[in-house]
Every structure is written in structure tokens, then in C-alpha cells.
């Protein structure tokens, strides 16, 4: 085993806080009935998190990333298979860069 004590403490902290995020939402909802507004918030928030995580990369990116994003969405809609969508999207970006396009 080659792990420093600092690293073990760091990862344990990350693990405990992550486990808390996975359990707490259930605990909150199990103890009270969320109204329609709170329910809508909970249903939409994970998806807006994805949108918020995607956006900075596309803002900073160029045509390669924009085209890659469009291809990912189309491939996912057509195939319903994430692996296919990833290969299509990442492949588009790789090919675009390999061709030396802007």
C-alpha cells in the first residue's frame, strides 16, 4: 500500500460528503410530502445541473466543440446508446482537430 495519510483523509472526506448527498435527498422527501412546486424543482434541478456543466465548455470552445455537441445529441437521439453518442461526439472533435480546422 502506498497511500499517504493526508490522501486517505482527503478521500474519506470526499466520500463522506458524497454519501451524504446520495442519502439526504431521500431522507428529506421521506419525512415530508413535497408540494408541486418543490417537486418540479427537484425534477428539473439535476437536468439544469447538466446544462450548467455543459455550458462553460461550449462558451469557451470553438466550431469543433459546437459540432461535437450537435453530433452527440443527434447520435444519442437516433441510437439511444450513450457509447455510440460518445464515440460520435468525441470522434467528431478529434477528426476536426486532426484536420487542423479552426
Amino acid at each position: 500500500m502506498i497511500m499517504e495519510l493526508d490522501y486517505i483523509i482527503l478521500v474519506s472526506g470526499m466520500a463522506i460528503f458524497t454519501a451524504f448527498t446520495r442519502l439526504s435527498g431521500y431522507w428529506i422527501v421521506a419525512r415530508m410530502d413535497p408540494g408541486p412546486k418543490f417537486r418540479q424543482f427537484l425534477e428539473t434541478a439535476p437536468q439544469t445541473v447538466f446544462a450548467a456543466m455543459i455550458a462553460p465548455a461550449l462558451w469557451q470552445g470553438g466550431p469543433a466543440e459546437w459540432l461535437g455537441a450537435v453530433i452527440t445529441v443527434i447520435a444519442m437521439k437516433l441510437s439511444g446508446n450513450l457509447a455510440v453518442a460518445l464515440i460520435a461526439g468525441v470522434g467528431t472533435v478529434a477528426v476536426w482537430r486532426a484536420l487542423g480546422l479552426p
Partner: peptide, 29 residues
Amino acid sequence: VFGLDFLGVSVFLGLLVLLRPTRHHIVPF
């Protein structure tokens, strides 16, 4: 070179499509 830095974006886009957002989701997105 292999476009792998784009992988995270690709994963989240694919997951968004999987959730079949409706037009009500457009403004929040």
C-alpha cells in the same frame, strides 16, 4: 489530440437527451 477533453461534455449531453426534456425545460436550461 483524441478529443478526450470533450468527453465530459459528451456524457452530460447524452444524459440530457436520455431524460427526454420537453419544451417546458427550454427556458430553465
